[in-house]
Design a protein around this nucleic acid. Structure first.
Length: 978
DNA sequence: GAGTTTGAAACT
DNA sequence: CAGTTTCAAACTC
């Protein structure tokens, strides 16, 4: 079935294929560890910009979350839409709720489940709006009143807002054996009010569909001021092994939903976007209502009786206590719930909502991460897959859909986006054309609009990639269109009345994860079909349904078992081609045709634990450049963070890390960028001068300097040579420097050639000795360099394949703190030898002349970036001005006076004015000229600049000379004193 | 090899 | 963002 979806090209693995390095983040694919049970869902966003308008942008993305054996979790993140234009019912502006529960997987996690709830902004409960995540639905209810009906019978968790508003999480009694806690805000009319939100006397009732929502919160969940709440949910039974936590929003299922849950009476037949995660969880977004459940502007008028103010943003969720607090400040709510173990529920729900064949398979579907952003611009599905929805009017060629073949969707034209879920599960996104286009309208009608769901248009650019797999299940029937997201694919969802913003790519969301690669294509780029923007299809998105379908062929993937199998591995390249192809479901996991390939060692079996198995993401740029990202392990190349010394041995030429972003940058180089490049070139030239000076400096530096300048091995010369051959900084061409295949290999897996290569360039000179960090913090050099510990003397080391989950989590943590954490600290901006410490040191006592200093250790002089005190490792700082000329003169004079030897000074000048220094100086001057030429600067200005450059260079040289003299003096004085 | 020093990383 | 603590490497003895 899906075989076509997946490209598993051994080619990509070809060592000869140039594979530009990718940032370390790129390697953070969903870990293998993720199990089907695990779910990580993020829902960002609810954009009700069209509250009144009905235009809403909604993006839903599903990402796979890291699942550790201990912690299985589903994360749902809802982000606020800051752009809410129309007033609407009180809406949470941005909300992030993160609930993490220990997975109830076959392997019962012993550790308590953690639930994180994070509310970023105002929370706006929508009466009719409901969000359904997996089995759990969260819906704000406008109905005033006390506890919803049937609360007593139900196990309820309350969420209280500062305002006194209360949200209830309802445990619907599971039809099946295991009851799952459901969180829902129900409209007052909801027959089964599982959850109610009452503020100011307004009560929202949550109705949980019997079959669908099941959530059990055994532990209280608290939302901290930070908006992040962690709650441990004991698993079922004493062991607490698996307690799926779901938030169940009971949304009035519009025409589609067959769900038992009753839609609020107030809302006739709201149209919903249903997103289904690979694990079978379903998220429904009621577009009819102006605001999504979770996100609405605070200022919005509340038609629904929800009393929650944006202002009141604090939420507390305590399952046990039932209290949930929402805070304004918190913009995000992430709910992580253990994925429902069993498909039946899911399937049911899915069928109810979507009713399409597509929905059927989820039982085993791996967890997915869904991110919905209020702005609605982006949808991230499974890891890096992104679907962007943008409100811009102009962009879209609306996709007119008539009733989709997919099933029972109430709405007519359904656009389906098929996204590969984990383990080959395909997620489908349906976009139902809204029948009504509402110009910006008053918000109040949110609930009432059931029929008139906000109009959302999906605009997608033509898929460039040809390989689109057809999912059998996907209806090719007329009306439903499957949108595959290809490289250039752009999906724009436009609510009526809302503007459609062409989403350049799906990458935006990825940014968090530093998927710079995706950005490589400007929106316009890519498919010849500009169409996405120009002729975007406009269509209401009534129902957004994303499903992860277990691809039959995925069996291989899934069968591969192991955590990896559950990760989505695919790349989506979608051919622009014909509509027919479009009808075909395209797997869209990654922006720019990224393909994920699982590579197993010859002997590797499907066993999940097989360390040898690795997943490579293959990426091919429009230009045909292939990139490979290794899923397992941290790519060494990309991460060569080089903390203390490693950097010093990495040669920019051979290992110059090139992040995806950087690559994109190159691809999209602009004149300004060119100018910057020139500047960088100048900087490099200066650095070169410095280095030259350092090399000549007899003291201390020399021995290491030689080392530092040693070029890495020629191992990859074949592939690298070309890349490096182009010194022209202006070149927009991607220059893969080294086959990532080798670079990315974990040390353990690295082939001999690779090892050699690495050894040549940056052989590990040492092994860590960590004792407390478990080698999962940047303290650990191995970890910081993206390497597995090997032959180290560390204690309790987790930096190995045995703890890949923890490791990946740690990586993510580091990246959260610092997205550049794994990027090389020392880089050569361009082609040059000039390496710069990106961050600079902060030495205070070492004078930057000991290896404590990262700059010194890397054999590079400190720069203006450094914050060091008493630095002795800088030959010339920018702040050095011509005054140094005088000082140098003085120094020379003093030196002369001291030595009484003019020849000495002459020798010094000869020493420092080496050919390299002169050359570098000239390069600086030339670069100025070039830059000015490009800028069409006046000749006079150019000349002046050039002379200034010369003066600056001379200043640096002089400074160096002066410092050297001072050093000599010091040495002499010390010698004398001794 | 133990103890100290150092500065980045992590934390508050 | 600044101050403090933690950490592991670098260094000293």
């Amino acid at each position: 079935m899906y075989t076509q979806r997946w490209r598993r090209s051994s080619e990509s693995l070809d060592d000869n294929t140039p594979l530009p390095e990718l940032s370390f983040e790129d390697f953070l694919e969903p870990t293998q560890e993720e199990t089907a049970t695990q779910h990580h869902m993020e829902i960002d966003a609810l954009d009700s910009d069209g509250d009144g308008d009905g235009g809403d942008e909604h993006s839903i993305s599903i990402k796979e979350s890291l699942n550790t054996p201990q912690f299985k979790r589903t994360v749902v993140t809802i982000l606020e839409d800051k752009r809410l234009r129309s007033p609407g019912p009180a809406v949470l502006k941005s909300h992030a709720i993160k609930v993490v529960t220990a997975g109830a997987g076959s392997v019962a996690p012993i550790k308590p489940q953690i639930t994180d709830i994070k509310v970023l902004n105002n929370f706006k409960p929508l009466s009719s709006n409901t969000v359904k995540i997996g089995n759990t639905t969260v819906a704000p209810t406008s109905s005033p009143g006390g506890t919803p009906k049937g609360l007593n019978s139900l196990t309820m968790t309350q969420i209280k807002t500062p305002d006194g508003k209360i949200l209830y999480l309802q445990k619907s009694m599971p039809a099946g054996a295991a009851a799952k806690p459901a969180v829902a805000a129900s409209t007052p009319t909801m027959p089964k009010a599982a959850v109610t939100v009452s503020s100011a006397g307004a009560v929202h009732h949550l109705v949980a569909p019997t079959g669908l929502q099941k959530a059990i919160l055994s532990k209280a969940v608290n939302v901290g001021s930070t908006g992040l709440v962690k709650a441990a949910v004991p698993g079922k039974g004493g062991t607490s092994a698996s307690t799926p936590l779901t938030i169940k929003g009971i949304t009035p299922l519009g025409a589609k939903s067959v769900s038992p849950a009753n839609s609020p009476t107030s809302t006739p037949a709201p149209k919903f976007q249903v997103v289904r995660t690979s694990d079978g969880k379903i998220i429904k977004i009621n577009q009819a209502s102006p605001s999504m459940i979770i996100n609405t502007k605070a200022n919005t008028t509340t038609t629904s009786g929800t009393g929650i103010n944006a202002a009141t943003s604090a939420l507390k969720l305590s399952p046990s206590t039932g209290s949930v607090g929402l805070r304004k400040s918190i913009g995000q709510v992430v709910i992580r719930a253990t994925p429902p173990k069993h498909g039946p529920d899911v399937s049911n729900s899915s069928t109810l909502t979507t009713g399409t064949s597509v929905t059927t398979n989820n039982a085993s579907a791996p967890s997915g991460k869904m991110l919905v952003q209020n702005t609605g611009k982006q949808i991230v599905v499974s890891n890096k897959n992104i679907i962007k929805l943008s409100p811009k009017p102009g962009a879209a060629s609306s996709i007119t859909n008539t009733s989709g073949a997919q099933g029972n969707s109430p709405t007519k034209g359904i656009h389906a986006v098929q996204i590969p879920g984990k383990g080959g599960v395909v997620q489908y996104v349906r976009v139902l054309p809204s029948t009504k286009e509402v110009a910006s309208t008053s918000s109040a009608t949110a609930v009432a609009r059931s029929n008139t769901s906000p109009k959302i248009t999906l605009v997608r650019s033509v898929m460039s990639s040809a390989a689109s797999s057809k999912s059998p299940s996907t209806p090719t029937s007329v009306g439903t269109k499957v949108v595959s997201v290809g490289n250039t694919n752009k999906i724009i969802m436009k609510t009526t009345g809302g503007s459609i913003v062409p989403l350049p790519s799906m990458q935006t969301l990825v940014s968090k994860r530093a998927l710079g690669a995706t950005n490589t294509r400007p929106p316009s780029v890519g498919s010849g079909n500009s169409g996405s923007q120009e002729s975007p299809r406009k269509q209401r998105l009534n129902d957004l349904n994303i499903q992860h379908m277990a691809a039959a062929d995925d069996a291989s993937d899934s069968s591969e078992a192991g955590p990896e199998t559950k990760r989505p591995r695919f790349v989506i390249s979608v051919p622009q081609s014909s509509q027919k192809q479009q009808l075909q479901k395209h797997v869209m996991t990654r922006p720019s045709s990224i393909q994920r390939v699982t590579v197993q060692s010859a002997n590797s079996n499907k066993s999940s634990t097989n360390p040898a198995k690795k997943v490579y993401n293959l990426l091919q740029s429009p230009k045909g450049v292939k990139y490979m990202i290794c899923n397992s392990g941290i790519p060494q190349s990309s991460t060569s963070a080089m903390r203390r010394g490693y950097t010093g041995y990495v040669d920019g030429k051979t290992r110059r890390p090139l992040s995806i972003a950087a690559q994109q940058h190159r691809l999209q180089i602009t004149p300004q960028q060119q100018a910057k490049n020139l500047q960088a070139l100048q900087a490099q030239a200066k650095q070169r001068i410095r280095q030259q000076q350092l090399q000549n400096q007899p003291i201390a530096v020399q021995p290491k300097a030689t080392q530092a300048t040693v070029q890495p091995s020629q191992a990859n010369a074949n592939t690298i040579a070309n890349a490096n051959a182009n010194p022209n900084p202006q070149s927009a061409k991607i220059l893969p420097e080294k086959p990532l295949f080798e670079i990315l290999k974990s040390p353990q897996l690295a082939s001999a050639p690779t090892t050699d290569a690495l050894a040549g360039m940056a052989s590990r000179r040492k092994h860590c000795n960590c004792s407390k960090s478990q080698c999962l913090k940047l303290y650990c050099d191995c970890f910081a360099n993206g390497e597995f510990c090997q032959d180290c003397t560390c204690k309790d080391c987790f930096n190995n394949l045995d703890y890949e989950v923890e490791r990946e989590r740690a990586i993510r943590s580091c990246l959260d703190r610092n997205p550049s954490a794994f990027k090389p600290k020392i880089t050569a901006p361009n082609s040059g030898d000039m390496r710069l410490h990106n961050k600079g040191c902060n030495c205070k006592r070492s004078g930057c002349l000991k290896n404590y200093c990262e700059c010194y250790e890397a054999k590079i002089p400190c720069s203006s970036i450094c914050k060091c005190v008493g630095c002795r490792n800088m030959e010339d700082r920018p702040d050095v001005d011509m005054d140094s000329m005088d000082s140098l003169k003085d120094g020379e004079d003093s030196n002369k006076a001291k030595d009484g030897n003019d020849e000495q000074s002459q020798d010094d000048s000869d020493r420092y004015l080496t050919d390299d220094v002169v050359e570098a100086t000239i390069m600086c001057m030339i670069s100025r000229i070039v830059m000015h030429e490009k800028q069409n600067s006046a000749l006079e200005d150019t000349e002046r600049e050039v002379m200034e450059e010369l003066g600056e260079s001379l200043s640096q040289i002089i400074s160096f000379g002066k410092e050297k003299i001072d050093t000599n003096e010091l040495v002499d004085s010390m010698a004398l004193s001794s």
